[in-house]
């Protein structure tokens, strides 16, 4: 695969401004992008679960818990 790298370098020198090795590369842009993605995921998850899902009443529940809840409501 080192052979591949040489080809790549010779083929695309025109497009390459610089060569960045393993140790000099900090994917800060990736961290930024994926951080934004993480926030979107967290927000949408809570939105979907607590607004869309739980707001979509009625929901299937276990009999006993509801009985307790109903009992409270009637009392």
């Amino acid at each position: 695969m080192s052979q591949t790298a040489e080809h790549e370098a010779s083929n695309e020198t025109s497009e390459h401004v610089r060569e960045i090795g393993h140790d000099e590369f900090d994917p800060i842009g990736t961290l930024t992008l994926i951080g934004i993605y993480f926030l979107i995921l967290v927000f949408l998850w809570f939105f979907m679960y607590f607004v869309e899902f739980l707001g979509n009443d009625p929901t299937v529940v276990s009999g006993t818990l509801v009985f307790l809840a109903t009992g409270e409501r009637l009392a």
């Binding site: 967290v42 998850w45 679960y49 739980l54 929901t59 299937v60 529940v61 276990s62 818990l65 509801v66």
Partner: peptide, 16 residues
């Protein structure tokens, strides 16, 4: 967190 939310729905809210 996802698994915890679902578990909360099952145990806390009684969704079966």
């Amino acid at each position: 967190g996802f698994i915890a939310t679902i578990t909360y729905g099952s145990v806390g809210l009684g969704i079966t």
